[in-house]
Design a protein around this nucleic acid. Structure first.
Length: 363
DNA sequence: GTGATTTGACCGAA
DNA sequence: TTCGGTCAAATCAC
């Protein structure tokens, strides 16, 4: 495994320190006859969550190392979208056409198509499980039991393939170790109008469990789960209140708090650890930059400093106002329903058709 | 009736 | 020869 970068290392250390502090608290509560069972449970959950995040950091680093094309994970690496619709350099142009040629001429040739992988975790208790809706319409064309894998792999292709010849595909594989984690491997790029010009793609929300839902069913889930930004923020802040309260005097299940519940989602992780995705932490895409098919600035970006503050504050039990400020700052750049904390899956990554070499980006 | 999913068979890369 | 990826008929859902 490659060494963690400074940002990731800091986050990792923070999580481990937090876990240690929580363990100390648990020890105190174990020796205190007045301590309630719920409090102890709560601490156990938080400890596990802390370790979960730490492991996620390490795991993400493995992903960057091992993934064939890790653009989705490491922002500093080549984004798959960097070879998309508006190639700037000759090299990227050649690369683009070679990929297209590979897709057409040798569609079954393994590892010949640009691919990138992302890992998505869902909350087991929310009822919303499975791989994420990612703004594109996919049609399942196969499912296969994979050798050594506990769960079958689902094969999806772009719905617009028959009409527009879009060759984008994705594979969804549930993790053996953690069934709440899905490995989604995208192959090829969207050449359909949906992928290249859609202004307001559906917000990204979890699909149901594997085997996944159809498009219609996914959209049902979407409609059920959609909330306004204000509602999201309010609910988020409501959850934040829990963390600022004295756990000894409240028996509210911690699962209601996204940040520290055992049902940790990518929303939390990505909100806390954008460096997992951004790799070097030097890329802090503006909303207009992140997604070409989402010109409504639906993606909020979390700067490394914000994350440092966030993680640091989290470790020392930040006040509600501090957290609110952080969230407010983070959300101030957004004005669409796909507010990043609710739909984090794309906030730290780049849509498959994103182009770094977009002529307007670096200007 | 239409469109999406399921699933066994087939193909081809490794 | 094995196994991952795709095809296509059957089935399901709306």
């Amino acid at each position: 495994m490659e060494s963690l970068n400074e940002m990731e290392l800091k986050n990792l250390i923070n999580e481990l320190i937090l876990g240690k502090e929580l363990a100390k608290q648990l020890q105190i509560h174990l020796n205190a006859p007045t301590s309630s069972h719920e409090t102890r449970e709560l601490l156990v959950h938080r400890i596990m969550n802390s370790y979960d995040k730490a492991l996620y950091l390490l795991r993400a680093n493995v992903i960057v190392t091992d993934t064939h094309s890790a653009g989705m994970i490491a922002g500093k690496a080549e984004s798959p979208r960097s070879r998309s619709t508006s190639p700037r350099s000759e090299d990227s142009d050649r690369e683009f056409h070679r990929d297209q040629q590979d897709l057409r001429d040798t569609p079954r040739k393994r590892n010949a198509v640009s691919s990138w992988t992302k890992f998505v975790q869902v909350s087991p208790g929310t009822g919303l499980e499975g791989p994420l809706e990612d703004g594109y319409s996919w049609r399942k064309y196969g499912q296969k039991d994979i050798l050594g894998a506990k769960y079958p792999r689902g094969y999806y292709r772009c719905t617009h393939r028959p009409v527009q010849g879009c060759l984008a595909t994705k594979q969804v594989q549930r993790s053996d170790d953690d069934p709440t984690i899905f490995q989604i491997t995208y192959r090829g790029r969207h050449t359909c109008s949906q992928g290249s010009s859609e202004v307001n793609p559906p917000p990204l929300l979890p699909e149901r469990s594997e085997p996944s839902l159809g498009v219609n069913q996914q959209q049902k889930v979407l409609s059920q789960a959609q909330q306004s930004p204000h509602e999201l923020l309010m609910s988020f802040q409501t959850g934040l209140k829990v963390i600022t309260e004295n756990i000894d005097t409240h028996n509210q299940p911690f699962s209601s708090l996204n940040f520290s519940s055992t049902s940790t989602t990518d929303a939390e992780r990505y909100a806390f650890f954008p460096s997992i995705i951004e790799g070097s932490s030097t890329i802090n895409p503006s909303p207009s930059f992140v997604s070409p098919n989402n010109s409504g600035s639906s993606y909020f970006s979390v700067s490394p400093s914000n994350v440092n503050n966030f993680v640091g504050n989290l470790s020392s039990h930040p006040s509600e106002s501090e957290l609110t400020d952080i969230i407010s700052a983070a959300t101030s750049t957004t004005n669409s329903p796909t507010f990043g904390l609710q739909n984090p899956y794309n906030q730290m990554e780049f849509e498959p058709n994103f182009t770094f070499d977009n002529p307007g980006f670096f200007s």
